[in-house]
């Protein structure tokens, strides 16, 4: 597969080194659990932008991603993966964050299209965000404008691989750890009143 289509986030390298140790120290049960969560993925496909047009073929007969155990669900509570498909305007971002907060862990985000990486063709728009990863934890970028369904499937496969092998530090862990950073970014754009509601104190939490 063309590696260039799949962009890891910028801390990929250091993460890989870090998780290598974890991978080796995994028990059999943990391995099995990883395998199961890689094998079964519930997706809430957030059609924020034009990338959404590529998702229906992926889920239906043409590309049939159900083969890989990927199923669409309606609500974030049930979902493991969120696809943010394209540019996020301020209005959409609020909902994206909200949806992200409501997913149960472990949760992953696939960002679809160039706009989520650097703004893409909306790079100078006053109303869209440029980097999705400043606001939520992102696990997988599928670059392109528009990326083909095959690219999205490739993204899924890669994500499944890394979950199975436990080779990445998931975005949600980073989000919890650096919550102050993400929160500051969110507040800067959206103001205080739409802050997500978090019960637990992430800073003092023991990550496994």
């Amino acid at each position: 597969m063309q590696k260039g289509f799949v962009a890891y986030n910028n801390e990929q390298k250091s993460l890989e080194a870090e998780t290598e140790g974890i991978k080796n120290s995994q028990t059999l049960i943990q391995k099995a659990m990883n395998w199961f969560s890689a094998r079964s993925m519930f997706v809430v496909a957030y059609g924020t932008g034009c990338g959404a047009i590529e998702m229906p073929p992926v889920f239906t007969s043409r590309y049939d991603i159900e083969r890989l155990g990927v199923v669409g669900v309606a609500t974030p509570r049930q979902a493991d993966i969120m696809i943010v498909s394209g540019y996020c305007s301020l209005k959409t971002l609020r909902r994206v964050i909200r949806t992200y907060e409501q997913m149960s862990e472990p949760k992953y985000v696939i960002a679809l299209g160039s706009c989520t990486i650097n703004g893409g063709m909306y790079w100078d728009s006053y109303n869209t965000i440029k980097k999705l990863e400043e606001y939520i934890g992102v696990d997988m970028y599928v670059a392109g404008c528009m990326p083909r369904p095959e690219a999205l499937i490739e993204g899924f496969v890669k994500l499944q691989e890394s979950i199975r092998n436990n080779t990445i530090q998931p975005g949600y862990v980073k989000y919890r750890e650096d919550y102050a950073y993400y929160q500051a970014n969110q507040e800067k754009l959206l103001g205080k009143e739409t802050q997500p509601v978090y019960e637990e104190d992430y800073a003092g939490m023991n990550l496994s």
């Binding site: 659990m33 199961f36 969560s37 094998r39 079964s40 519930f42 155990g69 199923v71 493991d80 149960s104 862990e105 472990p106």
Partner: peptide, 11 residues
């Protein structure tokens, strides 16, 4: 698989 995965979710 779905069922096992859901049972083993963290939160």
């Amino acid at each position: 698989y779905d069922s096992i995965k859901l049972f083993t979710k963290d939160t």
